[in-house]
Amino acid sequence: SSQSQGISSSSTSTMPNSSQSSHSSSGTLSSLETVSTQELYSIPEDQEPEDQEPEEPTPAPWARLWALQDGFANLECVNDNYWFGRDKSCEYCFDEPLLKRTDKYRTYSKKHFRIFREVGPKNSYIAYIEDHSGNGTFVNTELVGKGKRRPLNNNSEIALSLSRNKVFVFFDLTVDDQSVYPKALRDEYIMSKTLGSGACGEVKLAFERKTCKKVAIKIISKRKFAIGSAREADPALNVETEIEILKKLNHPCIIKIKNFFDAEDYYIVLELMEGGELFDKVVGNKRLKEATCKLYFYQMLLAVQYLHENGIIHRDLKPENVLLSSQEEDCLIKITDFGHSKILGETSLMRTLCGTPTYLAPEVLVSVGTAGYNRAVDCWSLGVILFICLSGYPPFSEHRTQVSLKDQITSGKYNFIPEVWAEVSEKALDLVKKLLVVDPKARFTTEEALRHPWLQDEDMKRKFQDLLSEENESTALPQVLAQPSTSRKRPREGEAEGAETTKRPAVCAAVL
């Protein structure tokens, strides 16, 4: 046999249950609850290399294929790409003598399909299967379609040439079993990697079954959420508030809700932002270029202005709740996480202390139980975000031990490091100062900020419009641009040419 590394010779191994799959997660993409704000000051410096380099560890398999027929071997997927077919160049070659004697062998292509993985959001991997055969590759009886790919989820059954000719079961060793999710959700989405997690739940990458488009699904544990919100009269209202707010909003710089499922837990389906959180971008770069800050901040102002015009105060604006559309420097941003939002009543007064301390406005800290506050709290938070983006460190921090965090904020005395700000323009610093004003009545509004000289930049605004146009074009394009080929190089076993392929839609398939 010419099988590559990772293939075992026996096809009769006992199949494990899916609970053996491991679970991976990374930083929070968007969480309903406010958790302790991640610290920006503690960015690790590059460490000196050791005298002796450690040995390379043996790579762990990321997936496993269990053979369902004699003549096929099990495969431990270690590499990122595997070709399957009769050709000797394939990493998994159909060359077992037992297999060659079967009637089905002649229906398999020289290069029938490939399984591979690509880097997705949060640097996690996504597994795909890609059909290159004349007679078809099927996943859970659905045709992939020649020249098309679809994501592979845990426990997928792979069939060759005929939908009933099941050859492998695919085990993704990095994700959960699909069966743990409600059927209504599974009918519409293929669940994938964990993108982030918080005290009350997690955010998962998923794929729409009909279109193969990526989405983010925010899962909120009702049990954990009820415990964490025990002081509230009705904890469920917080989730329902977020859903109702998101459904009503329609702005290019605000995250869109696509679906909602109320089962044992809450499942909020949101558009996916491939670039992750602004927080991670700031930490990764230490600070952002001023031109990049301007492009992002302009969009934040437009989003918050839209919220305020619609009578909504976000109340928890922070870099973790600003998501980026891509890994590119120039990209769209979207505001997310409306769990603490407040729809303005007639009095415009709110007395609930919520939000993240580092970003809270002075009037929030001094008015607990005594007075109210209004939309100006969001403008203060925007000032803190702009400060961080321009400088790479927070204006107020618990680690300045000589003054408490509350006193720093209520006095408006931010930590100004001259040598850092020497590289920032006077106009940018002036806008920061106009937003970090203790008196909410004297603080800049979103309208005033948008009129500030720093943002009178036609090149930046043109760039934003171009990015918007690109997004609109990409969302308007159909996901499947061509029909699967019906040509046949070899006959199917026991049926006429093209008899099955043309009847089945290529579900969740995307043209390369």
Rank of each mutant, 00 (worst) to 15 (best):
D330I: 11
C354A: 05
E271V: 11
Y373V: 04
G369D: 05
K463E: 03
L324G: 13
N259M: 07
V282K: 04
F260N: 11
K503E: 11
D280W: 14
D262Y: 13
G412Y: 09
S341G: 14
K441T: 14
R315N: 00
P484H: 08
D337V: 05
L349N: 13
D262A: 08
N321M: 03
C293A: 06
Q299L: 01
A376Q: 07
C331F: 07
L431F: 08
K281I: 14
V304G: 09
Q305D: 05
D265P: 15
L382K: 03
G383F: 00
K256R: 13
E309G: 06
G276M: 09
S341N: 00
L349P: 15
E423H: 15
A263I: 02
D337L: 00
L450Q: 06
V322R: 05
L307R: 02
A510L: 09
G275Q: 00
A291W: 12
T347W: 15
V304S: 04
G345F: 03
N472A: 00
L323S: 02
C389T: 08
N374Y: 08
T410S: 03
Y359G: 02
Y266S: 09
V438E: 05
V507C: 05
D337F: 00
S325W: 12
I245L: 02
K342L: 03
L390V: 07
C331I: 00
L390R: 02
D439F: 00
N310C: 11
P357N: 10
H452V: 10
V282E: 03
K463Q: 15
N285E: 06
G275M: 03
C508L: 12
K281A: 08
T446K: 02
Q483Y: 07
E447V: 10
L295Y: 07
F338N: 00
D337Y: 04
S411I: 05
T401V: 09
Y267K: 07
L246G: 01
T501N: 02
I257T: 08
L450F: 07
T445S: 12
L246Y: 00
L477G: 00
M300D: 01
A499P: 09
Y266M: 13
R451E: 09
V377E: 01
P484D: 13
R451S: 05
I313M: 14
H251L: 10
D457W: 02
E274V: 12
K289D: 05
L246A: 03
P505L: 12
R492L: 12
E264L: 03
P478M: 05
G383V: 00
T475W: 00
D330G: 09
E470R: 00
D378K: 00
W380A: 00
Y296C: 12
D466L: 00
I313L: 01
E447C: 11
V377N: 00
R492C: 09
A510R: 04
E500I: 08
L317W: 08
E346N: 10
D316G: 00
P478E: 02
H251C: 14
I268D: 11
S487A: 09
T356V: 00
L301K: 00
P484I: 00
W421M: 03
P357M: 15
G284Y: 10
D407R: 01
G355H: 02
T446A: 12
R315T: 04
L353G: 04
C293R: 04
L324F: 03
T358V: 11
H399I: 00
P357A: 15
V511Y: 07
S325E: 07
S411G: 12
L323E: 02
L467E: 00
K489L: 06
F261E: 02
L246H: 05
I343K: 14
N321Y: 03
K489S: 07
F338T: 00
L302K: 13
E271R: 12
T370C: 08
G412V: 06
L360W: 14
C508E: 13
H452N: 02
I243A: 04
S404T: 04
W421G: 11
E264S: 09
